[in-house]
Each structure stands twice: as C-alpha cells, then as structure tokens.
Amino acid sequence: MGIIAWLIISILFVLAFVGLVYPILPSSLFLLLSFVVYGIFYSFGDFHWTFWTIQIFLFILLFTTDYLANLFSLKKFGGSKAGMWGSTFGLLIGPFVIPFLGIIIGPFLGAVIAELLVHRISFSDAVKIGLGSVVGFIGSVVVKSLIMIFMIVYFLIVVL
C-alpha cells in the first residue's frame, strides 16, 4: 500500500510542475492533494500547525506570484490592464492552439493584440509590451518552481 501512496503522491507532484507551463492545470491544488493523499494513507498527525501555516502561506504566495510578476513586468515594459488581460487570455488559450510554443506565443500575442485594440499604440510599443508579458510569465514560472520545490522538500522533511 505504501508504494501506491508514494506513486500517487509523486504523480501529483509531477502534475503540479506540469501546471506551471500549462496553467489550465491547478498546480497548487495538486500539491495540496498530495498532502491529503499522504494523510489518508498514513496519518494527518505528521502535519503540525506550523506545517499547515507555512504551506498555506506558500499557497497564497503561489497564487499571487502570477499576478504580481505579470503586473510588474507589463508595467515595466509600458503595458496596461488591457495587456495583462490579453496576456492572461493568451496564456490560457495558447497551449491548446500551438501545443509546445503556445505557452510563450500565447501571452505575447494576447498582450500585443489587447494593447493595439484598446490603446491604439504603435506596433513596436505593443511588441515591447508583449515581450514584457513573456518575461513576466517566465519569471513567475521560475519563482513558482522554487516555491513548489521548497514546499515539497519541507513536506518530505516533515514526513520522513
């Protein structure tokens, strides 16, 4: 039974990381589910209040990282809320339209198109903003990866 539990937990960890590049998959929820699976198969007694406090803080940080990274990079590159919404839409749609490159092209095109339609700026400025959305996405993936690695390592330290 232990092998099955750790196999399920490991698959949930992998799905959490896949969710970083396919945002339709809820990374944070897969991590939370892996902790619940451990508790069901073994015991929730291993998880003290400090464990849940730290993990909940990091879950909140995961959710806000996307928004803050996108907002910061778009503002730095001259974008607006329209660019942010376009980038987010492109991020969700891009991977389905263009399977591998859509994760980069989607946010870029979404931000460019949104800025061109809403603010009627020059094409070169819109491209600059689109690049900012890609920089923000890549930055958020790196930061969220580090947070998730910390969450998993902390989980393993607590339970092993």
Rank of each mutant, 00 (worst) to 15 (best):
R120W: 07
L62F: 10
V37L: 04
G132R: 02
G39I: 11
I56R: 05
I121Q: 02
V127H: 02
H48N: 13
I138T: 11
L71F: 15
F51P: 00
F47D: 04
P99G: 11
A114S: 13
F137S: 00
W49K: 02
F47E: 01
S122Y: 02
I121C: 07
F59P: 03
L131E: 05
K144S: 07
F123D: 09
V142I: 15
L101W: 09
S34K: 01
F77L: 06
I113C: 06
G136W: 00
V143M: 10
L71M: 12
I93A: 15
F100S: 06
G39N: 13
M148F: 10
G78N: 09
F41A: 15
K144W: 03
A126Y: 08
L131Y: 11
F77I: 08
A114T: 03
K81Y: 13
T65V: 14
I147D: 01
L74D: 01
S145V: 05
T64M: 15
I149K: 07
T88H: 09
F47W: 09
L58A: 10
I98S: 06
I54G: 09
M84F: 14
F100Y: 12
V112L: 10
G90V: 13
S87Q: 11
V118C: 09
G130L: 09
G139E: 03
L91C: 11
A111F: 06
F77A: 12
L62N: 08
L68V: 12
L58H: 02
F59V: 10
F89V: 15
S80E: 13
D66S: 12
F59D: 00
A69S: 15
D46N: 12
A82L: 12
F72W: 14
W85E: 12
G45P: 02
G79M: 06
G94L: 06
G139R: 01
V36F: 14
G90S: 13
M148S: 15
V143G: 06
F137R: 00
I40E: 11
P107W: 12
L116V: 07
I93N: 07
L109W: 02
G106M: 10
V141A: 09
H119R: 08
L74K: 00
V141Q: 01
G132L: 06
D125W: 01
S87R: 05
I103H: 00
G130I: 08
R120N: 13
G86Y: 06
L61G: 04
F59C: 02
F89A: 13
